[in-house]
Every structure is written in structure tokens, then in C-alpha cells.
Nucleic acid binder design. Structure first.
Lengths: 229, 229
DNA sequence: GCATATTTGTCCGTATGTATA
DNA sequence: CTATACATACGGACAAATATG
């Protein structure tokens, strides 16, 4: 009899990320996560237990579990006895996130194996194709994926996860750049250049290019940051 | 009637110096986290909602919130409809954790500012003093703190937090080394050597020493790992 | 500064679904 | 296959903290 449940779960987990049964809390968290990273829920917005529970059709207890999950993703902050709010990144947060990216992406460039650059190259090409069609939203997505796959070269699930969560955090401020096109567009050529260097085995040069990219992107984001240091 | 629950909560909370008001979920999570990293709750152990809620004097709702927090620390795994269990690290996990440490600690060695080595030096000296007193538990603590403060040189809260959680995860397998002395002891001299190199501004050499340390520690841990790759 | 309304924190009881002996 | 134990999820209750007028 279906004592195969465990086997099925493990097999499914190893192969495809598709999961048959997720808890309500996870489902609700996924919905809210999407609204936060897509900018539907803006930084500082309050997430009322009563209103949201009503809107999503879940009880307050379930919603609170979802809040804990989102808080761990750093997408919301839980203020005791006050409630849950969409996170507002400070300039300090932005600097920290870019420090973290420098560490992760430098390591990726240093350990990059030229034969594993497939997904990285694909992201570059998706970005260029999107730019040709003036689909700036897709350009932004491809830019993020380029760097995500770059870190993926480390072949570390924990680093992948960290990078993924960090990029979600950064999206909280990307929304402040009302012209996403102007922000992500100029970086396409730099991504292409980094890819080329990696394919030629020029890890050192690629790392230097990457650090320049990150320095410039950080500086640009900080000019739009209203918060003090 | 026993509505004295709140009084008991305050009494317990007042013992902790740091923060006056933490949620019950956070307090419970902290208690359980301690039991897991101290090896009181061993990997694979089941955390029953009913039993633990009874023992800790909190409702199942509150306990479930605490579980979400612990699951995010990767110290427990939440299997849907089955319950919460203390995490069992596989050999794959150990390798991943050391990959992560290599990235973080290499970055730390590379960016180390010799004038900020105070806490690192202090940890080395605490370890040596503890070894002189044959306090192997303190030796282990100092060893972990040496590496924690090393990463602290990056001055990144997010990296600090990541390192801290990763070390907590590693403690899940340190308990398998029944002789903690034999495990942490030999690394004291290597820590001292790394410190010396950093103080002399020999970042490259320090990084190489560090990588050797991590390779050896990883290999030693893997010999005690019962799980397949 | 105070009284009041709102919201969160926490608990309880219970019905339903799932897994395992 | 059935029985049992347990997790999931809901809704209601009330005290405490916070926001509001």
C-alpha cells in the first residue's frame, strides 16, 4: 500500500521541484512573497492579520505561520505587538547586500568551470533578446538570473539559496528605480563581457569586471536610497 | 484559575538580560535551539507538538510558530503531515557546509585588516588557555569563535548571521565525534598560525592555510558520517 | 494625559486529513 | 484493513499592548 509516500516525496524532491502537498502557510507565504517582490505590496505596508486572513481565506493562526516564513526571508519585519510590515531597506542594507554579492560572485568567478557555463550563457542571451524586443521587465529578470546562475557555478545549494533570497531582498529597492530599463539595460554588455572572460578561462579578469559591475550597481542604487547610512 | 500563565512568562523572561519582550515563539525556539546544538535532542528525534507544548507550557499554535523559526535555521526538518524532526546531516550537507565556509573564510582572509584582528587573536588565546586546562569543551567553543570572528572581519551582518547559523548546523555532527578533544585540539596550532600570517599581512598564505584546515576538518568529519553521498 | 477602539499575542476546543502499527 | 495517533487548520475567546480621538 502507499507506504511509497516517502519514496515519492524524496524522488520528487531530488528531480523536480513540483510538490503535491504544501501546507497552507507555505501557500500563503508564496502568494505574499510574490506580491512583495513584484512591488504590489510596497515597503512599509502593514500586513494586517485580520484583513489578510479574510482576503486569503485562512485563519489568523495559519497566516501567522506564513508571516514567520516571510520574516525569515527578510522580506517582512515582525515588530512585537505591532504587527508585520513589508521590509524597508536602508542604505546600510543595500551596502551589506552588495558586500555579500561581492563575496559570493567573486568566489563563483574564481571557481568557474568553463564547461559549466551553459545556464550563464543562456541568461546573457535571454537578456540580449529581451533588450532587442524592448521588454525591459524580461531584461531585468535575465540580469538577475545571470548572476544567480553565476553563483550556481559553486554548486552549493546553500549558496544558491542565499543568493536567491538576497536577490529577492534587492527587488525591494529595484522598485524604487521607476525606470527599470535604465537600470538593468547598461549592464547587459558587462554581463556579456564577463561571460566571455570566463569562457576564455580568464577568471581573474572576470572577477575584476564583476567587482566593477557590483560597485557601479551599488552606487547607482544608493543614489535612490532615501535612508541615512 | 490558572490564568497565572502570564506571570510565569514574565518571570522567565526577566531572567534573560538582553531583551525584555520576546514572543513566546522566539523564547521557545531559543530553548529548543539550545537543546539541539548541545546535543540534548539528537538528530532524528521527533519533536511532538503535544508533548513539547505540554512540557514547555505553550499552546500548539505557539509551538508551531517556534518550529517555523527552527526550520529556517535548518536545525529541524518539517515533514508535511508527519511532524518536525531534528535534522540529520548527510555527507552531502557536510560537504556543502564546508564549501560555504571556504567561500566565506577565504573572503575574510583576503579582506582582513590587521588592525581589526583583536577578537580573532582573543579567540586563539582563549583556545590555548582552555587546552592548558584540558577544558575540551571550551577548546571547541574557542575554535568555533575563531572562525566566527574571522568572518566578522568582512563587517557584514548578513555574512555573520550566515556563518553563525552554519556553525550551529555543523554542531549537529560535531556530536558524532565523541571525542571532541581529539577533533578540535590539533586545530589550535593551525589557528595560531593563520592568525600570525594575517597579522603579518600575508593574506594569501593565510588563505592557503585556512583552506588546508577546512579540507582536513571536512575529511575528518566525513569519516564519521554514516550517510551516503 | 486620558479614555477608548483596534490589533496583536496566546490559548482552547474541535473537525478533518494523513500516516503508521 | 482497521484502529490509533498525530498533524493540519479553523474559529472563538480574552488579556495585553498599541494606536486613536
Amino acid at each position: 500500500m502507499p507506504r511509497t509516500r516517502n519514496e515519492a516525496q524524496r524522488a520528487g524532491a531530488s528531480a523536480a521541484p513540483a510538490r503535491v502537498s504544501r501546507s497552507s502557510a507555505e501557500r500563503v507565504a508564496a502568494i505574499l512573497r510574490g506580491k512583495v517582490v513584484d512591488g504590489v505590496l510596497l515597503p512599509g505596508a502593514r500586513l494586517s492579520e485580520e484583513r489578510l486572513g479574510e482576503a486569503l481565506g485562512v485563519s489568523r493562526n495559519t497566516l501567522r505561520e506564513a508571516f514567520r516564513l516571510l520574516a525569515h526571508d527578510q522580506l517582512v519585519v515582525h515588530e512585537h505587538n505591532r504587527g508585520v510590515f513589508v521590509r524597508t531597506l536602508t542604505a546600510h542594507d543595500i551596502r551589506d547586500l552588495y558586500s555579500l554579492r561581492r563575496v559570493l560572485e567573486a568566489a563563483a568567478a574564481r571557481h568557474a568551470d568553463p564547461v559549466r557555463l551553459g545556464p550563464v550563457r543562456a541568461a546573457v542571451e535571454r537578456g540580449e533578446a529581451a533588450a532587442a524586443h524592448r521588454d525591459w521587465s524580461a531584461v531585468a529578470t535575465a540580469d538577475l538570473q545571470f548572476h544567480q546562475h553565476l553563483v550556481g557555478l559553486c554548486a552549493s545549494p546553500r549558496l544558491d539559496d542565499l543568493m536567491h533570497r538576497s536577490m529577492a531582498e534587492l527587488r525591494l529597492v529595484f522598485h524604487r528605480m521607476h525606470a527599470a530599463a535604465a537600470f538593468h539595460g547598461p549592464y547587459l554588455q558587462r554581463n556579456r563581457q564577463i561571460l566571455t572572460l570566463l569562457e576564455q578561462g580568464e577568471g581573474e579578469a572576470a572577477e575584476k569586471e564583476l567587482m566593477g559591475y557590483l560597485d557601479d550597481a551599488e552606487a547607482e542604487l544608493l543614489t535612490s536610497a532615501p535612508s541615512p547610512p
